[in-house]
Design a protein around this nucleic acid. Sequence first.
DNA 1: TGAAAGGAATGTTAATTAAGGTTAATGCGT
DNA 2: ACGCATTAACCTTAATTAACATTCCTTTCA
Lengths: 227, 227
Amino acid sequence: MKTKILYVEDEPFLGKIVKESLESRQFDVRMVADGKEVMSAFMEMKPNIAVLDVMLPGKDGYTLAKEIRQIDPNLPIIFVTAKTQTEDLIKGFEVGGNDYLRKPFSMEELIVRVNNLLQLTQKQQASPKENIAIGKFEFAPQRYELRKGDSLRKLSHREAILLQILAENQNNNIDRKTILMRVWGDDSFFNSRNLDVYITKLRDYLKEDDAIEIITIKGIGYRFVVG
Amino acid sequence: MKTKILYVEDEPFLGKIVKESLESRQFDVRMVADGKEVMSAFMEMKPNIAVLDVMLPGKDGYTLAKEIRQIDPNLPIIFVTAKTQTEDLIKGFEVGGNDYLRKPFSMEELIVRVNNLLQLTQKQQASPKENIAIGKFEFAPQRYELRKGDSLRKLSHREAILLQILAENQNNNIDRKTILMRVWGDDSFFNSRNLDVYITKLRDYLKEDDAIEIITIKGIGYRFVVG
DNA sequence: TGAAAGGAATGTTAATTAAGGTTAATGCGT
DNA sequence: ACGCATTAACCTTAATTAACATTCCTTTCA
């Protein structure tokens, strides 16, 4: 699945160039020009990263960053602005930004910084060879085995992948869609029902430990909480 | 314990200023001027972050970054250099750098970027929101659970977010609009009615404790008072 | 000045729709 | 035939919309 960029820029000419340039690098870009429209676009598209101009009609980039931070404390945010003063940069980081790029900037630099942030914020997922501790259980992803004390349960392929995705993202929300794409490769209606079935199975397998819970977030996905 | 910075810089004058400036911010700084000495200093001090000049006697910064990456794939690395070309910057990220600062730079900017990277790499797995005490209740935002004594009520996603917003802002006015944006992402008519419904639900859940009240401030929003 | 009227904002409860959960039956490859 | 994966049928719960009630602020007029 493509990485989704929410790009907020009110200069149409610059905006178009940057958007196309990012798209040519296989990013899925949504551009918004008016500050007031950003939050609804944000909720709708659920971007992986936000690139914000600071000076905007409607609402400025700093305010937007603050609002985004309230909803998602982990989303990478890059400011791209003509404001070159150090104080402006500091403010950008203060409101929750993770990088600050002064205009004019080179496209290459933006792309490199976008990728850098995406990498930094991705979970350094335990290499799938290592066993993962899940409450009182221990999960061996490569062997599809779920252990608790002396009892052992062999998982099927789908069960194992699903559990691995959940375990890798403990305490974080996981999109239904993300799961569907990773386990089934598409998010059709039937696979979506299928996911329900597998969630039920995993809940059943894990019910011996009360500290473990797969919380449903209706309309969004799941959150796997342990302890 | 202080955050340890490994600072590699061969210009003694600049180096001294930066080092002292970082130390005045409570960082524990070790400065190395010769590229060849960096790796042993690295192994010895086990820094939390590295700030590298690129052009150095002995071994250049890019090479150092590569060597550091072999040992620690997650250590934040910032390049600080007089090389202003985009290609140099790209190379910096390619070899594993996480930020790139062109000389001359302001101390403030360096510090802000250092802190940003430290935060980004720490935030990783641990985002366990702490339980919030609400009068006689205890609310576990991660698990969407509201407890009072031995009784437990599981909240839905919307209920939980709303309660969290209220609880975070105990005794302060909260704009309706702010709530709507955070819970629904927009403040349309229907969602506004929706908010009323959820406020009613929370009032119902919390009515067992008389000290808790969700006060309506007509035309503004709500105030959540406890005790 | 203050009581009544009117209206907008909010409260409450219920009905509706949509999402997800559960269990069982079916399909399909080995 | 076995084991998993998929589809289906039916059930439960959350979220939204709707309908009607209330509150409280504002306006107006005695």
